[in-house]
Design a binder for these strands. Sequence first.
DNA 1: CACCTTTCAGTAACGATGTCACCAAACCCA
DNA 2: TGGGTTTGGTGACATCGTTACTGAAAGGTG
Lengths: 222, 222
Amino acid sequence: MNADWIEQFPGLSKLEPAIRDVLTRKSAVVTVREGSVIFGPGKSPENLLLLLEGRVRVQQVSEAGREIVLYRVEAGQSCVLTTACLLAHEGYSAEGIAETDVRAVAIPRTVFDDLIAQSVTFRTFIFTAYSKRITDLFQIIEDIAFQRVDIRLAQKLLDLERGTGQIKATHQQLAAELGTAREVISRQLGEFQRRGWIRQSRGSVELVEPDGLERLAALDAA
Amino acid sequence: MNADWIEQFPGLSKLEPAIRDVLTRKSAVVTVREGSVIFGPGKSPENLLLLLEGRVRVQQVSEAGREIVLYRVEAGQSCVLTTACLLAHEGYSAEGIAETDVRAVAIPRTVFDDLIAQSVTFRTFIFTAYSKRITDLFQIIEDIAFQRVDIRLAQKLLDLERGTGQIKATHQQLAAELGTAREVISRQLGEFQRRGWIRQSRGSVELVEPDGLERLAALDAA
DNA sequence: CACCTTTCAGTAACGATGTCACCAAACCCA
DNA sequence: TGGGTTTGGTGACATCGTTACTGAAAGGTG
């Protein structure tokens, strides 16, 4: 079986040979179809996932049905926060959804525990990932609490544009990205369009003049 | 030296004897004066702290100087999120402040790492604490994004009242609790007072009719 | 105590954001 | 083609955040 996937994770490339062996023998490469709910309320993840290909969106869903995107796990990253959350708590109301077809390495809980115990490198890998996620969450809290919506939307549009200058998303989905309401997105996009920065069509946004968005996004907490 | 402090942490009471020994020998009980900044931007924590007495407030401070309280560490709990954040990242802009005089066990980084490696019990203790904190952060994000401030303020007043029916806090401090502005707090407290639920005086709030606050707080995401 | 400074709270006006109600256009599918 | 569903647009209003200013309360100093 091909174990070269380890090279895709910089933090793991220095893994001790014995550990490396355990990891490749006791984990499995799995594939998940786009749109699948990987974990969610009442569906604990059984494995730690290391993403080889694709993208997972993690979002919080409120009782009232409103959604907010917390972060995304990309290829080369791990779903590490779930490792804490699969241990104890019920109250884990976040859910993970495959935004694309996903190929990932699944590390069972017991193996994860062994690796943590046996490998400094693996520990560093995991805790570094934790650090990144947690500081991201802090940033989200700060943005939601203190940042203007127009600035956040401009940043998000630039962030979601993956080279193509096109963003496939409904206003409702963009609202969920920022934790705001659809109507607010409609108004802001309308304003961006009036300024000639974007062109809208049903279900997608085309960036016409990214510079305008960049300038707005750069205002940040000025 | 007295090592009975371990009994104050339910998650550690089943600690393996050998590990227990390492923990007591290689950690130190420290005291911190009320108001001290335990960690913050440019001041990485060197140790994992387990709180024996007192309370630590962890808050995010934005560039513009605005603050929002993220969570509190109470006696019997650990400053566990710092363990991730002391590893890698600069961008750790949260700070921890002793709200009272604090007595705590300080576990050096290297010892923390050893304990993680050697003890299942310790690992569970740490990851369980992570889980709790992270779900708390998710809840904060949801509240900030979707909950009305009057409801959040009512909940916070009931939360901060520690038996006495009295809350020692300025409007500015209450604003930081919720990540909103002082003026908003002043307005809401004015409204609560008109309804006869509270009595205000400079620097403190007295709960006169907690039931009113309870009813409002219970509206939650109804 | 008188005086000054700092901190804290109140308020009005306005801008930004969130909510509600409703409509219209675009898409989907039978 | 027709009818339902999804998506987007909009006005009216409520809530929340910001600005600017005021004065009261506490604290320090001679």
